[in-house]
Amino acid sequence: MTQINIFVNDTPMSVISPISIAELIALNQLDDIGTAIAQNHTIVSRPDWSKTYLNSGDKVDVFTLVAGG
């Protein structure tokens, strides 16, 4: 296990690798309902969160989907 540095919504964060997107969500106690995740500017489908692992330097964007019009 090694410590890696990532960016979550442009904020630097140190995490223990290996860490998946699903684990990052749980670690940060984020509400995963309505949440979309992008890894290095590519959206990761929710079913893939648990098998998508983060690498050092990765940029993770967490945002909430909206549907109003």
């Binding site: 309902i33 949440t35 979309a36 959206i43 489908s45 929710r46 909430t64 989907l65 909206v66 109003g68």
Partner: peptide
């Protein structure tokens, strides 16, 4: 691809 497994809470009426 984006929304099939996501529940969206936010809309103009509630938010």
């Amino acid at each position: 691809c984006l929304t099939n497994t996501i529940e969206v809470r936010e809309d103009c009426v509630t938010q």
